[in-house]
């Protein structure tokens, strides 16, 4: 099955999320996603990149990696951070931490909605610790129609 991969690395700073969001929005539009679905994809990307930058990076220099894969059926986005082990903080992805975030989520809270949004809007959402000591977040959005990929 034909597949195209796009790899990006951005500094771990919120400033760089916006241009990536715009790029991924344009890509999703080119792939034939509806306007509503493009908004969903952009929102999910913003939320998972924000978590990687704010919770999963020791400093700006370490960077956040993105791998965007397109095959005949789906657009998949992997966001990889390296964690905060150098600062002595625990990886923010622990089962206890995730359960705590989910249990405490409330419309009245100012924070803690990002994972909920990603889970709600992506066709598939997966979070795993990675070998670098950080977190991999993978989200998949099914293409509206199967398509041929030109590489």
């Amino acid at each position: 099955m034909a597949q195209a991969d796009i790899q990006l690395q951005i500094p771990s700073a919120a400033f760089y999320i916006e241009p990536v969001r715009v790029f991924v929005g344009n890509l999703a539009q080119s792939l034939g996603f509806s306007r509503k679905r493009v908004s969903d994809i952009q929102l999910v990307l913003d939320e998972i990149c924000s978590n990687a930058v704010h919770h999963g990076s020791a400093d700006e220099k370490v960077g956040v990696k993105l791998c965007i894969s397109i095959d005949t059926h789906a657009l998949e986005i992997l966001v990889r951070d390296t964690g905060r082990r150098y600062t002595g903080e625990k990886n923010w992805l622990t089962h206890e931490r995730l359960s705590e975030i989910e249990m405490n989520r409330s419309p009245n809270n100012e924070r803690g909605h990002g994972i909920f949004i990603a889970k709600s809007l992506a066709d598939m959402h997966e979070m795993q610790p990675n070998a670098a000591g950080g977190t991999d977040v993978r989200v998949t959005f099914r293409l509206p129609k199967p398509r041929d990929i030109e590489i």
Binding site: R21, S39, Q42, L43, D46, E47, S50, P107, N108, N109, E110, R111, H113, G114, I117
Partner: peptide
Amino acid sequence: SHINSTAVGALVGVAK
């Protein structure tokens, strides 16, 4: 044309 949960949270917090 786009708002994320951090911005929504800021609005909710200040409204409260």
